[in-house]
């Protein structure tokens, strides 16, 4: 497994040099800065907007970085033929795949962490200046970014799984579509419950349980609107973390099985 870590580290160092990904990171940070320029509202509304926008931008930049990074990880290696030299070394295919995935996770962690830390500090300053009636602990924003990270962890495994047998372009749209469908889970659940006929119900039930439920990780709302409170927050957060890890494991096993058969 050391080999996987070597590949992971290499993947990170390469990804951190990719201009496209860094551009998203920079744009993300820039937009967060811009968000703080809104000043015409009352303190409460102002902070609401800043929180919602900031977390949303972290999420959006994260999604773009994740998809663009993950869909290319394997195909890039094949296209550039670097995979030949690697797999002709004593590297098992699953080690290679896991290394690549860990590299993606490390890259995402660094990106999300950079944006989050920046955002939380900026928010803390803004809140201190605005002096709202019910200030929130700025560190609690990390709960949302943790959820964003878990969502991206799952999204990355999905994109890597798909990348084993689709081209990056197809994968881009496929991953994005599945991400959107997975975000609509509150709708799919309703449709599964109140569908017109058993076929429709069954279909949406399957969608609800089979498509990765990216909507699970929506934790922006309680932070943006501190008046509303979540019961059993710990349960919610921890179960989502487990959900992401388990589902990612499923996708990675399937990716390993598919990659094992794949001709490079």
């Amino acid at each position: 497994m050391n080999v996987a870590l070597v590949i992971a580290r290499n993947t990170i160092s390469e990804a951190l040099r990719r201009k496209v990904l860094n551009a998203f990171l920079m744009v993300g940070v820039a937009v967060i800065v811009l968000t703080f320029a809104f000043g015409q509202f009352q303190a409460r509304q102002d902070l609401t907007i800043v929180k919602g926008m900031g977390l949303g931008i972290i999420s959006l930049a994260g999604i773009l970085i994740t998809i663009i990074l993950s869909i290319n990880l394997i195909p890039n290696e094949i296209e550039r033929r670097t995979i030949y030299t690697i797999l002709s070394k004593p590297v098992r295919r699953y080690e290679f795949l896991i290394g690549k995935y860990l590299g993606a996770l490390g890259t995402l962690l660094l990106n999300i962490l950079a944006m989050s830390v920046f955002f939380v500090i900026a928010f803390a300053i803004k809140q201190a200046l605005a002096g709202p009636e019910n200030p929130i602990n700025p560190l609690s924003l990390f709960k949302a970014t943790l959820m964003i990270y878990m969502q991206l962890l799952l999204l990355s495994s999905l994109a890597i799984f798909l990348s084993v047998f689709t081209t990056p372009l197809v994968n881009f749209f496929l991953s994005f579509s599945l991400f959107i469908v997975g975000n609509l889970s509150s709708f799919t659940q309703d449709l599964a419950k109140n569908g017109a006929n058993p076929i429709v119900k069954g279909f949406f039930l399957a969608v609800h349980y089979i498509v990765p439920n990216f909507g699970n990780f929506q934790y922006v709302n309680p932070l943006v609107n501190p008046e509303v409170q979540v019961k059993s927050e710990f349960l919610f957060l921890s179960q989502n973390v487990i959900y992401a890890l388990v589902y990612a494991a499923v996708l990675m096993i399937l990716a390993i099985l598919a990659f094992d058969r794949r001709e490079v």
Binding site: Y209, N213, G215, Q218, Y219, N221, N225, F236, I242
Partner: peptide
């Protein structure tokens, strides 16, 4: 192993669904 974990996913989802049905998370 994948099948077993997939079943875990379904079970987890069933547990997460009611938690999500809170006004704070999904109005």
């Amino acid at each position: 192993a994948a099948a077993f974990l997939a079943i875990c996913v379904v079970v987890l989802q069933a547990r997460i669904d009611p938690l999500r049905r809170q006004p704070a998370i999904e109005p």
